[in-house]
Simulated assay, not measured.
Amino acid sequence: MKKNMKTAWITGGSSGIGLELTKRLLKDKYQVCIFAHAGIEQAITELQKLSPAVCGFEIDVQNESTLDAKFSEAVATFGTPDLLINSAGISIAKSFEDMSSEEFLRQININLVGSRNVAHAALPYLKQTVQQGNTPKIVFIASAAGLVGCYGYTGYCASKFGVIGLAEVLRMELRSEKIEVAVVCPPEVDTPLVTEERKNGSPVTAALKQLGGSMPVEKACQEIYNGIFTSQFMIIPGAQLRILTKISRVIPDVYRSQIDKKLDKILNNLRAS
């Protein structure tokens, strides 16, 4: 541990958005602990080419006692966190009718309850960072699917709407503790999770998702990274998604009417093909 270096913890740090944010933090001279369910060893090998100030821990965000143990190890390695990014999550793109209760609950448990568990287990250490005279920050990675509903995403949308609600309340509750909170709502980002989903996903879902746009992981993560170091609470990468979100909030009935027209057109084209 180097006392002059800030420390970041990132769950879901072995791939996708979490991995890309880790790379940027290491380049900016952070010490970084990544936590993930799988892929730790390979990610650490890649990341150590950028900086030796990185370590990894295998976790399950559904198990808070495991998080307690691993976070304690992380503190022993690099000290308490200045920045906590919860990027762990899964997506199962199926219709409500086709999705089993187990699949629905798995998304809720990992994306929403997991976010709660990560924040709750890290909170004592974030308070220690405050006692050391610093202002730590919790960043939740939610989704555009937490801002507007998307066809074929009942479990995912429900979980990500919940993550935004969790972040909203923590922003208020932790304000007096001098702990900042932000939530990131990206559009579709070209990550391994999305690549896998495209193999069997609904063409209706794919078409509707384009209303919010799709971003390469590097561009999305640069916007996310820049946003983390501002006072913004809600970070929305991509101009297209920012416009869509504003329309959905300012004129929700018009927004839904346009979505319905788009949906009907897509479904009619699929029936005709």
Rank of each mutant, 00 (worst) to 15 (best):
V184M: 07
G227W: 10
V184A: 07
L126M: 12
I247C: 05
K137T: 09
Q232Y: 09
D260W: 01
S257F: 11
G16F: 13
K6C: 00
S159P: 10
A167P: 09
Y125R: 12
V54P: 02
W9N: 05
A142N: 03
K199D: 06
S159L: 09
K160N: 12
M5S: 04
K94P: 04
S95N: 12
A43M: 08
Q210K: 12
L211R: 12
T154A: 14
A121H: 01
Q232C: 03
N117C: 14
I40C: 03
E46Q: 15
G89T: 11
L21P: 06
A69C: 07
V118R: 09
T45N: 14
A158Y: 10
C55G: 00
E97V: 13
C150F: 06
L263P: 08
A36S: 15
S14P: 05
Q48C: 02
I34F: 10
D253A: 14
K265S: 11
I92E: 10
I108Y: 00
E103Q: 15
I266Y: 05
I92W: 01
R242K: 15
T245E: 02
E102Y: 03
G238L: 05
F35S: 03
V217H: 04
L123G: 06
T230N: 02
L147H: 00
A145C: 14
C221I: 03
G89Q: 07
I59N: 03
G213A: 11
L19Q: 01
E188G: 06
G79C: 05
W9S: 06
L67Y: 09
T230P: 04
R198F: 09
I110G: 05
L25R: 01
